[in-house]
Computed example of a mutant assay.
Amino acid sequence: MTVATASAQIGKAASEATDAAKHKIDQKRAESEAEKSGPVGKAVNNVKSGYHKKQSERSADKAKKAIKNAG
């Protein structure tokens, strides 16, 4: 593997890690809003929280794979 390819994989991993962190923040924000909301708001924010949790996990997995591919 060339240095350029490894560098690209590291860049991709960093990007995915950033996405994972952003989704984690959005997940926590939705959970906080759910606690403050009425029944409908709770349902909506719980769905948002679940979505961001899955996206965070997906991005973290992609980052791990990119790091493996760089090595």
Rank of each mutant, 00 (worst) to 15 (best):
T18G: 11
K62G: 03
G71M: 07
I25Y: 08
G71A: 10
S59Y: 02
K24S: 10
T5I: 15
A20E: 00
N69I: 03
A20M: 02
A30R: 00
E57V: 06
S49R: 12
S37R: 02
E57K: 14
Q27L: 02
S49Y: 07
H23M: 07
I67N: 01
A14D: 07
A30N: 01
E57A: 11
I67S: 03
Y51E: 15
Q27Y: 10
G41M: 05
A30M: 01
K54G: 14
A17T: 11
K48H: 12
K68N: 14
K22D: 11
E31D: 03
K65E: 12
S49A: 15
T5Y: 14
K54Y: 13
K12H: 12
M1D: 06
A20G: 01
D61Q: 07
D19Q: 08
Q27H: 10
K68F: 09
A30I: 00
K24L: 04
D19F: 01
S56R: 05
I67A: 09
K36C: 08
A63P: 00
G41L: 06
P39I: 12
A20C: 01
E16M: 03
S32R: 06
E16Q: 08
N69Q: 10
A4N: 12
R58G: 12
R58I: 13
E16L: 02
K24P: 10
